[in-house]
Design a protein around this nucleic acid. Structure first.
Length: 834
RNA sequence: GCCCGGGUGGCGGAAUGGCAGACGCCGAGGACUUAAAAUCCUCUGGCCUGAAAGGGCCGUGCGAGUUCGAAUCUCGCCCCGGGCACCA
């Protein structure tokens, strides 16, 4: 008897797949499609168990869908990840391309070793011109429509990366790649994509994702887009001129309680405001102090700071004259960069006014509870609830909701404001001062200004030899052959843009390119994308909830407006697998607690690793890595192997024809019971793949089946070969998506030529799965008091009669009166007594 | 503060209105073996009771409620994890 040896079996089938040219069959016309994709791998050189979990889920589902007869697109691609590549260049003096390619080669080796069913022919590298060409092409289309534009703005700057970061890439005031480095602010000319144009649609279309996306991802996106409706109100500056300051507020109903107007420290009107003030030097130094504070995000959470500008504005509703202050907690990036200060009804304003001794004026009384009295010094916090307006001129007595509506309308009529919707989402800054990325296809001409590179000159290629210093400017700026160009408009000298694109641009649409990866005329043919899109199933970690998954939704809508695609959402279903932890901490290279995929493959075989990934926890939950756990999975696969091996010889030699279907009457009890268990298992596993994705219970079900088949009953005598063969074949087919190598081997042992991966998923037979008899629970007042074995489908009357006459049950009924009985077919009888 | 998860044996987890703890790990005992490993078998939530077979009670974070029946549904609390946050 042979033992299960993954070290010989796994390479054997890996080789066969490679030689047969495809891990997945070619698409057949007219068949339904399934596009499954794992989130872009990160070429850090080590595929650890966190990645493996991601890929294992995707691979199992892709294999299952193929066995169900769908055309499956399951491609493989690689991001350029400019930053690690350039860091490697700095540290080891190796070209980013070499570094990237070396890492890609390593990771591909791991993916092949594990038998992931990728379609290698559709592999793409986003860091190569054949891909970034189309990044540039799409950028130019956006430029033509004003969706790509250049402006000077304050940007987040990571001093370690020496590059600009998008807002989405700032985490807790630090760089997403360096959680120990505070992001600084810098004023730079930058290229932006106008994501805000799509803010409303990005929010609205989430309705389509309700079913297929995890709620937490949608919640994070909703939060990030941050829609709020309110009003924009103009306060005229007291004194000469018509200058006015606009504020945005969601609580215009509290405007009669405004006791000041607050400006962000970097508000553009600010320098003009106090230029005539007598105490100018003092104000300037206050201002500089405040600016210093807001430029260091870590300080933001601490203390309210501000100073009086010496100027006043007129409240357009009340006509009141209120002072203009500068406050550190007012953000220039949100709303208008100025707010009205209503201390009675906003906690931040309240704290500010208490500190600087500005008056507190109550204008909204709560509907329930004690009335507020501003003369009462004991008011400890702002009252932010809606209520009824007081001391608010003609609006006094209105409810907050009505007042908000009416006051916005009145402001519009009287010309000093209007209702407005504001978003937290900002335009996406994509300029990066890096070498290893897509060059932005723009020229600057002394006479023509900003000139796009004509399509026929694309791609603007990255020069091969650059000095990467990691300092300040874009490395491309040091290459005269790259920088110096000719203006396509006037033929004069022009300077080429030397920044490259954020690599998140690459990853925003890479999955479209898979549908047409060698296209030289366009990013992809619309028809090719139309067949495969939208993606049926995207699988990835939660870390992309904001960054990648908002960007790619934006790209989809943008490409729809370009006429490239017809759908509005790229991904129908999103699955976020939980993290793999070790010692309670997420595995990551920086923490050094990585369990490498290759080590597991060598020690236990990759199939064992795959089963463990699926079995140890439901896939959306975090998973604690356990050596004992993987030992258990190894034992299970050994048992399955020995089970098939034990019977294989006899089954191969048996000449009895296998019937197309088993008629109940022709089966012995042992045979029927075996077939029943097999089909019940098949139902559970199929349901898990179709509905729930709880692969831990699929594996448990298969383990149960193996335990039954493996048990000490001498199957050789009680079960005829065709029946046993059917059961074992079904078992092996169910194993195929989970442990593809071992399943192929077992399939061959059962006398087949191989190619289980291309076989059909076994058909479920309800009749065979049916139970003949059930154990009925007998409850008295909801407590279990007895059990009863009855034939399937036996009617209520008879079951109740038997239940009541049961000896043990009868003892409990003694002296009691039966009030009613509850009957659940094939399940229970509950007798209610008094 | 707001939003999203979650709380079940020694552990990972199963059960989504019907026997709580499937399956696996750990642990205990046994078989095989000169021995060990591997393998196989049995037991394994707690407490009480019984010589044993068995029987009883308690038990899914806490407290109420709905129901013949609640881990599951409703309400109120507690705790843990994650996300967002001077967003006006």
């Amino acid at each position: 008897m042979a033992d299960y040896n993954p070290q010989t079996i796994e390479p054997k089938w890996q080789k066969i797949w490679e030689e047969s040219g495809a891990f997945l069959a070619d698409a057949e016309p007219g068949r339904p499609k399934y596009y499954v994709l794992e989130m872009l791998p990160y070429p850090s050189g080590t595929l650890h168990m966190g990645h493996m979990r991601n890929y294992t889920i995707g691979d199992a589902v892709a294999r299952y869908k193929r066995m169900r007869g769908l055309n499956v697109l399951h491609p493989l691609g690689w991001d350029s990840f400019g930053l690690p590549a350039e860091n490697a260049a700095l540290q080891h003096n190796i070209h980013p391309r070499e570094w990237t390619n070396a890492n890609i080669a390593q990771m591909k080796a791991v993916c092949r070793r594990f038998g992931f069913s990728y379609d290698w022919r559709r592999e793409i590298s986003t860091c190569e011109p054949e891909y970034y060409h189309w990044n540039q092409w799409l950028f130019l289309r956006m430029f033509e429509r004003g969706l790509a534009f250049r402006k000077r703005s304050r940007v987040n700057w990571c001093p370690k990366c020496q590059t600009v970061l998008a807002n989405e890439q700032v985490v807790d005031g630090c760089c997403w790649r360096h959680d120990d480095t505070a992001v600084e602010a810098k004023d730079l000319e930058q290229w932006f994509l106008r994501t805000t144009d799509y803010a409303d649609e990005l929010l609205d279309d989430m309705k389509q994702l309700d079913e297929g996306w995890p709620e937490r991802v949608l919640a994070m996106q909703r939060n990030w887009i941050g829609k709020s409706s309110g009003a924009r109100i103009r306060f005229r500056l007291d004194g000469e001129g018509e200058t006015s300051i606009e504020v945005f507020t969601t609580r215009v109903d509290t405007i009669y309680g405004a006791t000041a107007l607050l400006l962000a420290p970097d508000h553009p009107l600010l320098p003009g405001l106090y230029k005539d003030q007598p105490n100018l030097p003092a104000l300037e130094s206050e201002w500089n102090e405040l600016r210093r504070h807001i430029l260091r995000p870590a300080d933001l959470a601490t203390e309210k700071l501000g100073f009086f500008t010496g100027r006043h504005v007129i409240n357009p509703f009340s006509g009141e004259r209120v002072p203009v202050w500068v406050a550190n907690f007012v953000l220039m990036e949100y709303g208008t960069g100025a707010v009205m200060c209503v201390p009675a009804h906003d906690q931040r304003d309240f704290e500010f006014c208490r500190k600087y001794e500005l008056p507190v004026k109550v204008v909204v009384q709560p509907l329930e509870g004690a009335a507020l009295d501003e003369s009462d010094e004991s008011i400890g916090e702002a009252s932010v609830e809606y209520g009824r307006l007081v001391d608010s001129g003609p609006y006094t007595g209105l409810a907050s909701e009505q007042a908000i509506e009416k006051m916005a309308a009145d402001a519009r009529e009287r010309g000093f404001g209007q209702a407005e919707i504001t978003y937290r989402l900002r335009d996406w800054g994509i300029s990066r001062q890096r070498y290893w990325g897509t060059p932005i296809p723009i020229l600057y001409c002394g006479s023509c200004g900003i000139v796009p590179v004509p399509d026929e000159q694309l791609p603007v290629r990255l020069p091969d030899h650059v000095a990467i210093t990691g300092q300040g400017e874009s490395p491309l700026a040091g290459i005269p052959e790259f920088v110096n160009a000719t203006c396509p408009k006037c033929g004069g000298p022009a300077r080429r843009e030397t920044d490259t694109m954020d690599t998140f641009v690459d990853s925003s649409w890479y999955f479209y390119r898979y549908t047409d990866p060698r296209n030289g005329r366009a990013p992809f043919e619309p028809a090719a994308a139309a067949y495969w899109f939208p993606i049926d199933q995207y699988i990835g970690g939660i870390e992309h909830a904001i960054l990648h998954l908002i960007y790619s939704r934006f790209f989809c809508k943008m490409m729809r407006d370009l006429g490239l695609v017809t759908h509005s959402e790229p991904v129908l279903r999103l699955f976020s697998q939980g993290m793999v932890q070790k010692g309670g901490v997420a595995m990551s290279k920086s923490r050094g607690n990585v369990v490498a995929a290759m080590d597991i493959a060598e020690r236990y075989g990759c199939d064992t690793g795959r089963v463990y990934m699926l079995f140890a926890a439901p896939p959306e939950k975090d998973l604690e890595w356990s050596e004992q756990g993987i030992e258990g999975c190894s034992r299970f696969l050994n048992r399955a192997f020995r089970l098939v091996d034990r019977h294989a010889e006899r089954l191969r030699q048996d000449q009895t024809a296998k019937p197309a279907a088993f008629a109940a009457g022709e089966l012995t009890d042992a045979e029927r019971s075996l077939l029943r268990k097999t089909h019940q298992t098949l139902k559970r596993v199929t349901d898990d793949f179709e509905l729930r994705w709880h692969f831990n219970t699929s594996v448990a079900a298969v383990m149960e089946l193996v335990n039954v088949l493996y048990g000490n009953e001498p199957l050789e005598e009680s079960v005829r070969p065709p029946v046993l063969k059917t059961c074992l074949e079904t078992l092996v087919a169910m194993l195929a998506p989970l442990v593809p190598h071992m399943a192929e081997e077992l399939w061959e042992m059962l006398g087949h030529k191989g190619g289980l991966a291309k076989k059909a998923w076994p058909a479920f037979d309800r009749e065979l799965a049916r139970e003949d008899e059930y154990e009925i629970v007998v409850q008295i007042n909801g407590r279990v008091r007895g059990h009863l074995v009855v034939e399937a489908g036996l009617g209520e009357e008879e079951v109740v009669r038997r239940a009541l006459s049961d000896e043990k049950v009868a003892a409990f009924l003694d002296g009691k009166q039966v009030v009613k009985t509850v009957f659940v077919a094939n399940r229970l009888v509950n007798v209610v007594v008094r």
